[in-house]
Computed example of a mutant assay.
Amino acid sequence: MRRLISGAVLAVSVVTLTACTTATPYQPVTGNPASSMARGYSDQKIETNRYRLKFAGNSATSRETVEDYMLYRAAELALENGFDWFTLSGRNTKEDKSTTTTYRDPFRGPYYGGVFWRYYRGPGWGPWGAWEEDETTFYRYEASAEVILGKGPKPEGDPNAYDAREVKQNLDGRIVRPAARQ
């Protein structure tokens, strides 16, 4: 029975860990887009040809992927609304950095609970307190911009103007969609 429970706990741990290390797929945000846990794209129509757009990834999603997904969504918005090109205004990519440190317990081992462990400084004994074992830094990116949509040929000489069909075609192979639920 104990072995069965241990196996079940291990299986749940592996599934949970795997879910945490998967990059955010290209998907709309579910729930509140203002939540710090929101992952995916959200857009808000401001005018007939203007949207506020955001794509937020998790710590397994690269900066390049987050920016590509925002561009892809801007191209989709243009084409869905009958426009040919778009420009990005106020484009920004925010980086959130968090560091996690794990510690080794100095009191683990055969001498746990020994009074002398804490005070004796001789060879083979460690100092008081925990030792830093490992430090991991996680990065999370969120890209945002106002998207201005236009019809006809894209403006020449504007480095912020994109042909919607071309962007969609060129980025389509890089888009990872969520797995279908069974």
Rank of each mutant, 00 (worst) to 15 (best):
F55T: 04
V115C: 03
N81M: 03
R2K: 15
T48Q: 05
R118Q: 14
W128K: 10
K97V: 14
T18P: 02
M70C: 00
V14N: 05
S35D: 05
K97M: 12
L17S: 13
Y69W: 09
P127V: 06
T21Q: 14
G113V: 06
S59P: 00
E132P: 12
L10V: 12
S59L: 13
L171E: 01
E47M: 04
C20A: 09
Q44P: 06
A38G: 04
Q182D: 06
R73L: 02
A23T: 03
R3V: 07
G122T: 00
V29M: 08
A164I: 04
E76G: 07
Q44L: 06
L17M: 14
V66E: 10
Y111M: 11
S36G: 13
S35P: 00
A38Q: 04
M1S: 10
A130G: 09
S6T: 00
E146S: 09
V9K: 14
K97Y: 05
E80K: 12
T93V: 01
E166V: 01
P33E: 05
T100A: 11
T22W: 02
E67T: 01
P28H: 08
E80N: 15
T99C: 01
A60I: 12
R118N: 15
S144C: 09
Y41T: 15
Y112G: 10
G122Y: 02
G157K: 02
S13M: 03
G124C: 02
S42W: 09
R52T: 11
D158M: 01
E47G: 04
Q44A: 09
V147L: 07
G124A: 05
R73S: 03
D134P: 05
S42D: 13
L53Q: 02
Q27L: 14
S6W: 11
A130S: 13
A11Q: 09
E67L: 02
G90P: 02
E47T: 12
P106I: 03
D134Y: 06
E80S: 09
R177G: 07
G114I: 07
I148R: 05
S62F: 09
K94M: 11
R3L: 13
Y103Q: 05
T101K: 15
R3K: 13
G173W: 11
D96H: 10
A164L: 02
T65P: 01
V15Y: 03
W117H: 11
L10R: 10
R140T: 09
Y51D: 00
R121D: 12
A130H: 11
T21S: 13
L10C: 10
Y141W: 15
D134G: 08
S42G: 11
Y26H: 04
F138C: 03
Y119V: 14
C20I: 09
E166S: 08
K168M: 01
A75Q: 03
W117C: 10
S144H: 10
L71E: 05
S42V: 07
R177F: 11
Y111L: 09
V15I: 08
D172G: 09
D96P: 03
R104Q: 14
W131F: 05
K151L: 03
Q169P: 01
R177W: 10
S36Y: 03
R3G: 08
I5F: 12
T22N: 08
P153C: 04
A143P: 02
S62T: 01
V12S: 02
V176L: 14
Y69I: 00
G152Q: 04
Y119I: 15
Q27C: 10
L17V: 14
Q44E: 12
N32T: 03
N170Y: 09
G152M: 01
G90W: 04
P127N: 15
A180W: 12
